[in-house]
Amino acid sequence: METTKKAKTHPDRFRYLNKMVIQPRLNTLPPALTELIDVTARHPKERFASSVDQLLLYQSLTFMMNAKKILDCGTLTGLSAFSFALGCGDDGHVYTIDVNEEFVSIGKKYWEKAGISNKITSILRSAVDVTKEMLKEHEGTFDIAYLDVPKEYYEVVYENLVPLLRPKGLLLVDNIFLDYLVFEEDESKHDELTTHVSNFNKRISSDDRMLNNFIDIGDGLAIAVKK
């Protein structure tokens, strides 16, 4: 199985995780997941995909919460939606949002192959618009929300996601370290993308509606629980 760029954190990190966690877990899951991981590792937008250990964490958290309703903002090649669908039961459902039909079509092929496509609804529209509209009928009903859209939209989508979550609902946000660029304290050195992520990190960290944690996994993951 191919690794990703994010496995470079420590020379032996991926080797150890692969031996102790990743391969034992993947061996119990549909082979289509491993195939999609490999396809995504060769994708030009691979930088923004979750690492394999993140995907397994998403499945575990979904299973632990017995989540029935998951909102996945940023489908890309469909890995996160795949993981959430594996974690929820037959009565669970994942709504995944992306504007790029070409990217999403990659995931659909492997969802079908794994027999989980019936648990996933793909919405090909802007997450900004969809999450805003969902507030009319779905406020306070989602068990889990995942945020991995273009970074300039993080804050506006976040403000829609928080009210969509039920109390004690879980929010996951990917790429919050952005190749560790946000660690630069002199913000005048931040490029536009880093500034967007840095501003979002400040927002979620100061939001008294959420219990927030930053986890050094993949490219950085925020794990927050709605109070």
Score class of each variant (00 low, 15 high):
Pro24Asn: 00
Asp91Gln: 15
Val99Trp: 02
Ser60Asn: 14
Glu35Cys: 14
Asp38Thr: 06
Thr34Gly: 14
Ser80Pro: 05
Leu71Arg: 09
Val39Phe: 11
Ala32Lys: 03
Gly107His: 03
Ile37Gly: 05
Tyr95Asp: 10
Arg42Phe: 11
Asn66Gly: 12
Thr62Pro: 04
Val52Tyr: 10
Tyr58Pro: 01
Val94Lys: 00
Phe48Thr: 10
Lys68Gln: 13
Phe103Tyr: 11
Leu29Ile: 09
Asp90Ser: 15
Phe63Val: 08
Tyr95Met: 11
Lys119Thr: 04
Arg25Thr: 10
Gly74Val: 06
Leu79Val: 00
Ser83Ile: 04
Gly92Glu: 08
Ala85Val: 09
Val39Tyr: 14
Val94Arg: 00
His93Thr: 08
Asn66Asp: 10
Ile97Ala: 04
Leu76Thr: 05
Gly89Ser: 06
Glu102Val: 13
Ala41Ile: 13
His93Met: 00
Ser60Val: 08
Lys109Ala: 12
Thr40Glu: 06
Ala114Cys: 05
Thr77Lys: 03
Asp38Cys: 01
Leu26Asp: 07
Leu76Asn: 15
His93Asn: 04
Leu36Lys: 02
Leu33Asp: 05
Glu102Thr: 11
Leu79Phe: 10
Ser105Glu: 14
His93Leu: 02
Asp53Val: 12
Asn100Ala: 14
Leu56Met: 03
Lys68Asp: 07
Asn100Met: 09
Gly107Asp: 03
Cys73Tyr: 10
Gln54Tyr: 14
Phe63Thr: 15
Tyr110Gly: 02
Ala114Ser: 02
Ala85Ile: 04
Asn100Val: 12
Leu61Trp: 14
Leu61Asn: 02
Ala32Tyr: 05
Thr62Tyr: 06
Glu101Leu: 07
Ser105Met: 15
Gln59Ile: 09
Phe48Asn: 01
Glu46Ser: 15
Leu29Asn: 03
Val99Glu: 11
Phe84Gly: 01
Thr77Asn: 05
Phe82Arg: 08
Ala32Val: 12
Leu36Trp: 14
Ala41Glu: 13
Lys45Met: 07
Pro31Met: 13
Val52Ala: 09
Val104Arg: 05
Asp98Lys: 06
Gly92Ser: 06
Met64Trp: 13
Pro44Lys: 13
Asn27Arg: 02
Leu56Gly: 09
Ser117Met: 09
Ser105His: 05
Ser51Gln: 04
Asp72His: 01
Asp38Gly: 02
Ile37Tyr: 13
Asn118Phe: 14
Glu35Met: 12
Gly87Ile: 13
Val94Phe: 00
Thr28Gln: 12
Asp98Gly: 08
Met65Asp: 08
Gly74Ser: 08
Ser50Lys: 15
Thr34Cys: 10
Ile120Arg: 00
Phe82Asn: 00
Gly89Met: 08
Ile70Pro: 01
Ser105Leu: 14
Lys68Val: 01
Lys45Gly: 01
Asn100Tyr: 09
Ser83Arg: 10
Gly107Trp: 06
Glu112Val: 07
Pro44Ile: 03
Arg25Asn: 09
Gly89Ile: 05
